[in-house]
């Protein structure tokens, strides 16, 4: 062992199967980190817009004005937050049904609630997108790394069989090279698992907030519908 072992030389000298495994793990790691960062930005943005909208909503502002502000924001190509989308879907449906006239208040309430449920599930889907990928990376990459290690150790033992004098120096580079695959698998898996757990709990808290808001908003609509029934007539 004249020159010391270098990780890069080991990777370059690995067998094709092990190199393929390493490449797969590397791309899985990069992709999972892309997801982690992107999800982090999406969830932070959702939380921020949610708190901002709640503040505006409970400030006592007129609901139709709030709706108009959202419309002008969408016209400026600025997307509205998740909670605002739920509000807009419910309010739009409510106003439309109410303006048609002669419709039972129960039906109006049912229509608004249905529209809000649809918007809610759409928002939930937006938040949970790609989280399954993180879960997959977290659970599968250790096995891929293990597979590469087994292949590498197998190869090094096969080459050991053709040696007349078996020494540790013959096996050591092969095993070290094989273990790199396991290390890379764990390297990809650990952040993915941590991020998945963290993000799914965040998504859950955000969606809880959404559903609470939807309930509150529908109670407001309900109150509005029955406090001045004369407007209906």
């Amino acid at each position: 062992m004249g020159e010391s072992l270098n990780v890069w030389e080991l990777i370059a000298g690995a067998t094709t199967a092990v190199q393929l495994v390493m490449l797969t793990l590397m791309s899985a790691s990069v992709t999972s980190w892309v997801m982690i960062i992107q999800r982090w930005m999406v969830l932070s943005g959702a939380e921020k817009s949610m708190f901002g909208f709640e503040k505006r909503f409970w400030s006592g502002m007129d609901l139709s004005q709030l709706f108009r502000e959202g419309s002008s924001q969408q016209k400026d190509n600025k997307p509205t937050g998740g909670m605002e989308n739920i509000f807009r879907a419910g309010f739009k449906e409510f106003m439309r049904l109410r303006q048609q006239g002669g419709i039972d208040s129960e039906v109006i309430m049912g229509g608004a609630q249905r529209a809000m449920r649809v918007a809610y599930s759409r928002e939930e889907e937006k938040l949970e997108k790609n989280l399954t990928f993180l879960a997959t990376v977290g659970s599968v990459t250790p096995y891929i790394g293990l597979f590469g290690t087994v292949i590498g150790i197998m190869n090094s033992f096969i080459s050991l069989a053709s040696q007349s004098q078996a020494s540790l120096q013959v096996v050591a580079p092969g095993i070290a090279e094989a273990l790199i695959a396991t290390a890379m698998g764990l390297f990809a898996a650990i952040p993915a698992v941590v991020a998945y757990n963290r993000y799914s709990s965040r998504v859950e808290s955000i969606t809880n907030n959404y559903s609470t808001f939807a309930e509150e908003f529908s109670s407001i609509l309900h109150r509005q519908l029955y406090s001045n029934p004369g407007k209906q007539a």
């Binding site: 990069v30 992709t31 980190w33 892309v34 997801m35 982690i36 960062i37 992107q38 930005m41 999406v42």
Partner: peptide, 10 residues
């Protein structure tokens, strides 16, 4: 959706 930035940081 913030993908380019994410790719860059990853």
């Amino acid at each position: 959706n913030g993908y380019p930035v994410s790719v860059f940081f990853a």
